[in-house]
């Protein structure tokens, strides 16, 4: 498992400096590849879908396109899940799908050089290190770099219908 993360880290190294969008979930700071981000909008008008996991908030209308909304705070078992003026939806584009993810706030865009990205250690159960590209260290801050592609298309997100083999 560490193998894959170092692989990813090395792949990132080859790409030289990359830009990341930094967002917060509770007190933690996360980052995703900015090229995956389509837009950022407020959390509003989400239609609930029954019989789905609770972290799937429902669907919303993004200029005529129906987009599912995932609350990463629920997915990552954060204690405090509130929806307010600060609650933000990051609309990402993964594998030709558009998905909105709910986060507590978006702070900034950062450029990380390959040596600032450290391989992620084996984590707990909630967030498997499979879904991490690494950890970004920035002076006294630590950014959890999420591999949003892998995370959103994973089985446990139940966002994508897997073709029955």
């Amino acid at each position: 498992m560490n193998q894959t993360t170092t692989d990813v880290a090395m792949a990132a190294a080859e790409a030289q400096n990359s830009e990341f969008l930094v967002f917060s979930l509770g007190d933690e700071e996360y980052a995703i590849d900015i090229l995956k981000v389509q837009e950022i909008r407020g959390y509003e008008n989400v239609t609930r879908i029954a019989n789905t996991p609770d972290f799937i908030k429902g669907v919303t209308n993004l200029r005529g396109v129906i987009v599912p909304i995932v609350d990463l705070r629920i997915k990552f078992n954060l204690e405090k899940v509130e929806y307010g003026g600060q609650t933000v939806v990051i609309v990402v584009n993964v594998e030709d799908r558009i998905v909105g993810i709910v986060v507590d706030g978006v702070s900034d865009v950062m450029t990380l050089s390959p040596d600032q990205i450290k391989p992620a250690p084996e984590f707990g159960v909630t967030l498997s290190s499979d879904f991490l590209s690494g950890l970004g260290s920035l002076e006294d801050r630590m950014l959890v770099i999420v591999d949003i592609d892998k995370l959103l298309t994973s089985d446990e997100m139940a966002l994508v219908e897997k073709v029955a083999e």
Binding site: I49, N51, V59, N61, I66, R97, V99
Partner: peptide
């Protein structure tokens, strides 16, 4: 009729979605 499967997946009991006059989504 808007397909749910485009960005999401098939949901039991729901055939598709649509957008209502106020811009919200209805199943």
């Amino acid at each position: 009729v808007k397909n749910l499967e485009t960005n999401y997946r098939k949901v039991p009991g729901v055939s598709a979605a649509t957008i209502l006059g106020d811009g919200s989504v209805a199943l």
